[in-house]
Design a protein around this nucleic acid. Structure first.
Lengths: 131, 131, 131, 131
DNA sequence: GTGGTCTAGACCACG
DNA sequence: GTGGTCTAGACCACC
């Protein structure tokens, strides 16, 4: 289901968050779908259950998923689209050095825009339906 | 000269790297310009000298700056534009979750492209000359 | 009859207890009234019968309701008003962090007192008769 | 500094949160004060560092405290008083069953109001200065 | 079965 | 020194 790289410098729990968010956003995971239990997921990606739990809790805090007591964890019916200015600024702040790095690696503006396009394609057709 | 946020979750040494790279890229810092010494810089931004030193070392490794023993640290004559595929993949990898987060924060594709445009504007006129 | 939120962090059985206590206190449920059977209730609020059973048992332990074997569950004739010091301390203990949280959420003392007033209103006219 | 009851049903990390919030609110801990390090605190209250860490992170998420990388954890300069409607509703939701329980334990409205008064006294004089 | 809490201990990045 | 991450395993409440 999802792939984790234990050697990556980005923490495992963040990788899980990223991957699941992506799947939710793409529509592979639809609202109401049940996620693997903490134990199942930890077995699948060969990590400690605590690590998965941490990821799930953060995703819940962000409103992407929700847990029903004793029943499991599910994709939320509708991800709230709070237009959070602070969050947006934070993202822009992270975006800038990334783009500058890209330039130093020999990428130009047009190519970057094309990357965005690629990501759009990859996320794809489901997106329109969802929003 | 540069502003650091000690509360940020991004390490201080990385913030220094980002800021200096940005200044170099914008052309505020031109090839041959002398950077403040590690001590001066650490006094300016109120951090441990080791932190500044770490940032300088990394910038040197990336070819952005050079240290001339006994004379100081200078902006390199020409930032080498190594087209490093690995680096590019890494950047793309970091870009994706950022963009997905942006969507969840209520930003759409067009706005993101506009951000890129804004960053381009901000970096400004020197850019064309350099590329 | 009663509404349960399966997403809430407070356990379902506790929610049932709270709601039924509230109804008893308001006078909607009067002494001698028959409660839905465990099965009926669990069907109504879509939970596991065990969960309802647990709530009923706890309410019985507190003297709010009584089960007459083979006949069903009923609201007790008179809720005993055991002045339980331990219980009171426990409640005060729980009250304090709640009020501090309220302050941090921007509520002041007067508003909190008004909340109490509101709850009093909501519980309403029957109360005087019962006390 | 703070007292924890390992037998209590409320999790240790929540007890830490409550106590520290209380101290901050009372003004015992002032903005800028350094908190004991995770290790120190865990030694003081005899728990695992992870448990303290969890409490600190939640307090940071709530804006009560902040961590400066590699330097430690400090009381925030000014606790943001976001008037969060959702939070307020949640508190009211938790308040109601508590008050009903109080009634069943033989406490009346006036006494509850007096409790609030007591808590106000206890939190005391610093409060006015802070707000 | 589910997730939530906690312990004991380890390693690492950061300043 | 600081906090952040992770593991291995345990116990518990809830459904």
């Amino acid at each position: 289901m999802i792939q984790i790289d234990p050697r990556s410098s980005t923490p495992i729990y963040e990788q899980i968050i990223h991957k699941l968010k992506e799947l939710c956003f793409k529509g592979v995971l639809k609202p109401g779908d049940k996620l693997p239990s903490v134990r199942e997921m930890s077995a699948m990606i060969i990590t400690n259950p605590n690590t998965v739990s941490k990821a799930y809790k953060e995703l819940e805090r962000q409103g992407i998923i929700e847990t029903l007591r004793g029943r499991g964890t599910f994709v939320s019916e509708s991800a709230r689209k709070t237009i959070d200015e602070g969050k947006i600024d934070m993202i822009k702040e992270q975006l800038k050095p990334l783009i500058i790095d890209a330039f130093y690696a020999g990428v130009d503006f047009e190519q970057i825009k094309q990357w965005i396009e690629e990501i759009k394609e990859e996320i794809g057709s489901e997106t329109n339906a969802r929003n």
